[in-house]
């Protein structure tokens, strides 16, 4: 274990770890908001639960990292069920406000719990997150999401997004599926949070507020709601560009704002809206087979020809 570690200068390795973690977090949110169409403005709250849970598992119970990660994911998923059960019946603005509210409540609670450091934060988390581990978890999450996409379960989720009444009349128990989907998305957020905790080593409630949720949502929106490759691209771009350009955090928000406005105008469906790995593979196959290119018809040469 450790194949990828130490290959790059520590600074770049750190950026790649951050990118990987945000890809994981954003894929969880893409399942909820992109695939199933349930606007979630509190994704950072589930990341937060995973982060604190895993940190406590590592620090106080001396658990192996894998156990701490899974515990973080599972507790986040459990909260997903508890919060999702009443709120997922709501739609649109109401759901958005409730998810937002939960994030803020969680933050206030953590501020006031001395056992996890309160406003001072929880410090002394062992730095166990390596690039190799993040990469492995990221690959597992990507494969899982691709599998969900082309499954009976995934089709049911998209059907719910597209038309909930038609979905119900076609045998889909929308409430049940939304709840399962939400807890899976929160599980992934929890795992992302656990990895984050063991990288950053200090947790403070204010790091998991509304702005963090919006940051993750931006990644999904930029890439294209519902698109797995798009979400990966969005997370990569929005995590690495500010790091590389060394923006201060105020400018980062400015960049996000400008980017979102530009997206709404030029690419309302995101950079890769509607693109899946499946469709990329299909297109690739078409290009590989000569004489079978749809863009290769005579009289359609393009480029002013």
């Amino acid at each position: 274990m450790g194949l990828l570690d130490g290959l790059l200068p520590a600074y770049y390795e750190s950026i790649l770890i951050t990118v990987g973690i945000y890809i994981i977090l954003a894929l969880g949110l893409n399942l909820i908001t992109g695939v199933t169409g349930q606007l979630n403005l509190g994704h950072a709250a589930y990341m937060c639960i995973g982060a604190y849970t895993s940190a406590i598992m590592s620090m106080h119970y001396g658990m192996p990292f894998i156990v701490a990660i899974l515990a973080g994911g599972l507790l986040a998923a459990a909260f997903g069920v508890v919060i999702g059960y009443p709120t997922l019946r709501l739609t649109g603005d109401y759901l958005a406000i409730c998810t937002l509210g939960f994030g803020e409540i969680l933050k206030s609670v953590l501020y006031n719990v001395p056992a996890v450091g309160g406003a001072m934060g929880l410090a002394g988390i062992p730095p166990k997150t390596t690039l190799t581990i993040v990469f492995i978890v990221m690959i597992i999450v990507i494969i899982s999401m691709v599998r969900v996409e082309s499954s009976r379960f995934g089709r049911a989720l998209v059907a719910i997004r597209e038309d909930e009444i038609a979905a119900e009349c076609n045998g889909i128990n929308a409430t049940k599926y939304k709840l399962q989907m939400f807890s899976l998305g929160c599980f992934i957020a929890g795992i992302g949070g656990a990895l984050w905790a063991h990288k950053i080593m200090v947790l403070q409630p204010r790091d998991f507020g509304f702005l963090k949720s919006i940051e993750i949502l931006n990644m999904v929106v930029l890439g294209g709601l519902g698109s797995i490759p798009g979400t990966i691209l969005g997370a990569t771009v929005l995590t690495s560009i500010p790091e590389i350009l060394r923006f201060s955090s105020e400018y980062r928000m400015l960049l996000y704002g400008a980017l979102l406005v530009a997206m709404m105008i030029f690419r309302p469906h995101g950079l890769m809206g509607g693109v899946s790995f499946n469709s990329i593979a299909k297109r690739g196959m078409r290009w590989l087979k000569p004489g079978d290119k749809p863009d290769d018809k005579p009289g359609q040469k393009g480029m002013g020809g």
């Binding site: 899982s144 969900v148 499954s151 009976r152 379960f153």
Partner: peptide
């Protein structure tokens, strides 16, 4: 049909 979320994964 009956494949669940675990079936999907």
């Amino acid at each position: 049909s009956k494949a669940s979320v675990f079936g999907a994964l």
